[in-house]
Structure formats: structure tokens, C-alpha cells
Design a protein around this nucleic acid. Structure first.
Length: 325
DNA sequence: AAAACAAGCAACCGCCAATTT
DNA sequence: GAAATTGGCGGTTGCTTGTTT
């Protein structure tokens, strides 16, 4: 059985809050707290639903709310955390004292998302947008083809069409190769630990300032009109991505069986939380589908364990973390 | 000066998980 | 154990303000 929305009651006010309403809410909470949001509006003399009161309090009236522009540090933290957590606004906001999930979400949607797109990143994956590069390249090639076609207008059009078809096949091959070269790592949302492990073992790739440089100089076009692409350094730095590193060591203060694996993530850029750690247990038969809550809460970095499994998306399960400062 | 458009943000909505009855 | 209730979260909406035409 479902439940009726709390704001369905007839006559309850919606929309922007007036200063008088704010004052009533603040006064009531300061005096009596907010044990029950449902009961609060009547007790406080407000013609609002409890949900509306809770939102107003948590997003605007709470005394510890930090207002004003986001600092560069806060911006970087949001970018770093979003790269790992995705749209977990509440979890991201918990790392930013005084900021609400709503504020972080709005800041992301109005500023950071656009910024990433402008920088050539996919705002969801935080990876360079290969579709843009490839479509841009295709566009250039198409223009070159058109130019060549016009240059050879004396040829029968059937012949030109046939040449274009051949070139389209070659272009498709080139694009396939480029995608392979541009995506040396699978997505971090991949749940298979083996895949994730192999990804993490090659994290050096993440921090290289690598990009594809597409020349628009037609002299670099080959004789059949297909352009060339080459890897060069530093145009689109991956600076906003947190650096993932193999940990120096792990030791367990609670015993773990050989079915267990350690998950960790180094977050150098998060103040007071240089390491976020957690352990979980998995069954050998289905490692990716059976991750259970932490079996230990204390992990310290003292001895090297080669068998540790690195799991970059550990932050996806924020509540499971043990933070060691 | 006015209309159109864009950006920013507070607030709402629906869903879900946890808790209570 | 099932149903009802509550609080919390993420997505979306729509109002306000600023900018451009």
C-alpha cells in the first residue's frame, strides 16, 4: 500500500517562505528541536507540511549553513568526489562543511557541469569526450573529401561515390582504432574486481596529460583523403581527477579470511582524510555480485600486502568507510 | 525602454529505505 | 511479518534576476 504525499492536505501553503514563516520555524526549532517534522508545523503555527519545513531548515535556515561563493578548494573537492561518487550529492556535501546537498547539486548543474563540458570532459564519466574528438575529425575528413570531390568533378559521379564509400569504410576502421587508443581503461563503474584491478594497475595512464591532436592542416592528409591523428602531451590535463595509487601496505586489526579483500582509496586532496579505507568479504564464485558490508573497522597501513585488491570506486559505498586521519 | 533570453537557485515532487506500529 | 509512517535523497520545476538584442 502506498502512502499519500505529506503535502496533499488541502489548504497547506506552498512556494517561497516569508520572513515571518522563517522566524516561526527558527523560533520553534531553537526552543523544542525537530523531533517530528510531521508534527512540527502545527506546533510551530505554520500552515506548511512537515517536509517543506524540514527542507527549509536543512537547506536555508540551519545556523551552520555556509553561504556565498564556492571556493576553489571546494570546487576541486566537488569535482574529485563527483568523479568517484557520481550524483551522490548528500555524500559529496558531507565533505564540505556548511554546504547542503541542494547547494552542491545546484552548483554542479549550473557551473561545474558546463565547465567540464567546455574542457572537453564528459561530466558523468569525467573522461575526455571521444565522441567530440571523433566527430570533429570525421567532419574534417568529410570536408577534405568534399574538397577532393570538387577538385575531381571531371570524374563520373558514380566513380566519386564509389571512392567515398571506400573511404567511409577506412574511416570507420580509423575511428575504431582511435576509440581503442583513447580508452585504455574501462569505466570505473565496472563492478568486476579483476577488471578494476587491471584498471588500477595502470593508473599511471590516468595522470598522464594525454590527448589527441588532430591537425586541420590538409597537408597532413594522406593521398586518399584520410587524416592522421597522433598522441601528444598536455592539452587536456586530467588534473581534476583524484590520483589513485597503489597503497604501500595494509595490515588488519581484525582477522580476515582469504576470501576477503581490502578496498581502499587514497584521497590526497580531501582535507583531514588522507586515506579512506574499508574491508569487505566476497565469495570466490561471484566476486562482483556479492560484496557485503565491512567485516572489519580498523585498517592501518603498515605492511605491504601484494594480494590486496584495489577498488577505485570504493567511495560509491560511502557509509561503509572507515576514515583514518 | 522593452522584450526576449539565459542563468541561478529555492522549493517541490516522487521514490526509496529505515523505522515504527 | 505486514502495513503504515517518517525522513532523506536526487531529479526537476518554475520563479527571480541579470544580460542581451
Amino acid at each position: 500500500m502506498g502512502r499519500s504525499p505529506c503535502c496533499d492536505e488541502i489548504g497547506l501553503k506552498k512556494g517561497p517562505w516569508t520572513p515571518e514563516e522563517d522566524q516561526k520555524l527558527v523560533n520553534h526549532i531553537q526552543k523544542y528541536g525537530h523531533a517530528s517534522w510531521r508534527a512540527l508545523p502545527k506546533l510551530a503555527g505554520l500552515n506548511r507540511c512537515g517536509k517543506s519545513c524540514r527542507l527549509r531548515w536543512t537547506n536555508y535556515l540551519r545556523p551552520d549553513i555556509k553561504r556565498g561563493k564556492f571556493s576553489k578548494e571546494e570546487e576541486q573537492t566537488i569535482l574529485d568526489l563527483h568523479a568517484i561518487l557520481g550524483n551522490k550529492w548528500s555524500a559529496i556535501a558531507s565533505h564540505l562543511p556548511g554546504r547542503t546537498d541542494n547547494e552542491v547539486k545546484n552548483f554542479w548543474n549550473t557551473h561545474l557541469k558546463k565547465k567540464l563540458i567546455q574542457m572537453g570532459y564528459d561530466p558523468m564519466t569525467h573522461q575526455p569526450r571521444t565522441d567530440d574528438i571523433i566527430s570533429g575529425l570525421s567532419h574534417l575528413i568529410a570536408l577534405a573529401n568534399l574538397k577532393e570531390l570538387l577538385d575531381h568533378h571531371h570524374q563520373p559521379w558514380e566513380q566519386s561515390l564509389s571512392r567515398l564509400q571506400e573511404e567511409a569504410i577506412q574511416l570507420a576502421r580509423l575511428q575504431s582504432l582511435q576509440q581503442h587508443l583513447l580508452l585504455p581503461q574501462a569505466s570505473f563503474t565496472e563492478a568486476d574486481p579483476n577488471t578494476v584491478n587491471s584498471i588500477t594497475n595502470s593508473t599511471s595512464l590516468m595522470n598522464k596529460d594525454t590527448t589527441i591532436n588532430v591537425s586541420n592542416d590538409t597537408s597532413s592528409m594522406s593521398s586518399n583523403g584520410i587524416g592522421s591523428a597522433q598522441f601528444v602531451n598536455d592539452s587536456i590535463p586530467f588534473s581534476h581527477m583524484p590520483e589513485l595509487k597503489t597503497p604501500p601496505s595494509c595490515s588488519y586489526e581484525a582477522p580476515l579470511s582469504n576470501k576477503d579483500m581490502v578496498q581502499f582509496y587514497q584521497a590526497e586532496s580531501y582535507p583531514n582524510s588522507p586515506w579512506l579505507l574499508s574491508c569487505s568479504s566476497t565469495t570466490p564464485s561471484s566476486p562482483s555480485s556479492h560484496v557485503v558490508p565491512p567485516v572489519t573497522t580498523e585498517v592501518s597501513l603498515t605492511n605491504v600486502e601484494d594480494s590486496c585488491t584495489i577498488w577505485p570506486e570504493i567511495l560509491l559505498e560511502d557509509p561503509l568507510f572507515k576514515m583514518i586521519s
